[in-house]
């Protein structure tokens, strides 16, 4: 049982002060200023006046920015969907792997995750660029196929055209999936691992196939875990800065890139602040939806 703080006032005060002060002064104050700025406007070159205007939010609703928001949401949603589809079988396999192998499989998934994000993105650039390894393999296959065609008496395939794999939306989505896949696999695994296996066995015994068992037993039971995996993937993907910046083309800007350019090149801090806070609100809405789903899932479980 926890102690009431009154029983050890000195210790309570000493232990609470540092984290509380740090959290407030070095986290909530910076965010609070940004929030205030989102209602301000530029005055002169460096000053910002807090005028309580909604103009920045109105500007964010212009078709250009609304389009970027919609695009970011779409890219993040597609990334999350791909992560679920790719990650679910992996999580399933790890769950039902022999006990002594499990930590090794988890290590296999987590090791890239601990590697620097920038380095992972850079590694993808090296693989995808026009003279990268994917295009080299493609070139090699192309030449061989072409030679084969000549041998069997057909016209060769013609000039080799490297695939455009970088600096477009495809690269951004591939990069986001690459970076966020471990985020998805972990929560999926931790839910599947706690699943009552006898239910699955019962379903299989009663004649349902694996696919049917998956969709009518595993997915409903693991719903909360899937939702938390979706959230853990969707939020960072929505706010991704580095991946669209390095892998994307001119039309692959996401919200974070617009925020960055407002704060750096465009030097319109109030507008950037409004965009940043719209992103924060979207994040909180996502968390609230997940909490709601979680609660209703719990209620269903009890009833």
């Amino acid at each position: 049982m926890e102690q009431s703080w009154r029983q050890a006032k000195g210790m309570f005060a000493a232990m609470l002060s540092a984290p509380l002060v740090w959290l407030v002064f070095f986290f909530f104050v910076p965010l609070g200023i940004v929030w205030l700025y989102s209602f301000g406007q530029n005055e002169g070159l460096v000053d910002i006046a807090f005028t309580g205007t909604w103009a920045n939010y109105a500007k964010a609703l212009e078709p250009l920015y609304l389009g970027i928001f919609a695009k970011s949401l779409w890219i993040a949603a597609l990334t999350t969907f791909l992560c679920v589809v790719i990650g679910f079988p992996v999580a399933l396999a790890i769950t039902f792997a022999p006990e002594k192998w499990k930590p090794w499989f988890l290590l296999l998934i987590m090791l890239p995750f601990w590697t620097n994000l920038l380095i992972r993105t850079y590694a993808l650039i090296a693989v995808l660029r026009t003279e990268g390894y994917v295009n080299q393999t493609y070139h090699f296959l192309w030449n061989n196929a072409s030679g084969f065609m000549t041998v069997i008496g057909l016209a060769p395939l013609g000039e080799f055209q490297p695939m455009e794999l970088l600096y477009n939306n495809f690269a951004v989505i591939l990069g986001l999936v690459y970076v966020h896949l471990p985020f998805m696999i972990l929560p999926l695994y931790s839910t599947l691992d706690r699943l009552d296996r006898s239910l699955l066995e019962a379903s299989l015994d009663l004649g349902a196939g694996h696919i049917r068992t998956l969709f009518s037993i595993v997915v409903p039971l693991a719903g909360a875990g899937i939702a938390s995996g979706v959230l853990i993937t969707f939020i960072p993907a929505l706010g991704a800065y580095l991946t669209p910046d390095l892998l994307g083309g001119t039309d692959s800007q996401m919200i974070a890139n617009v925020i960055e350019s407002q704060f750096k090149r465009a030097n319109n801090w109030p507008f950037g602040a409004a965009l940043a806070f719209l992103l924060v609100y979207l994040t909180f809405i996502g968390i609230a939806i997940q909490g709601f789903l979680n609660n209703s899932a719990k209620k269903r479980g009890m009833g």
Binding site: F27, L238, Y241, A256, A276, T283
Partner: peptide, 23 residues
């Protein structure tokens, strides 16, 4: 306090980044 501690974990990096820039 508990909820406040969770916010730095969930807030998008870019928002915290601009917060620090302004701060």
């Amino acid at each position: 306090f508990d909820a406040g501690l969770a916010i730095p974990i969930v807030v998008p990096e870019i928002c915290m980044g601009v917060g620090m820039l302004v701060f």
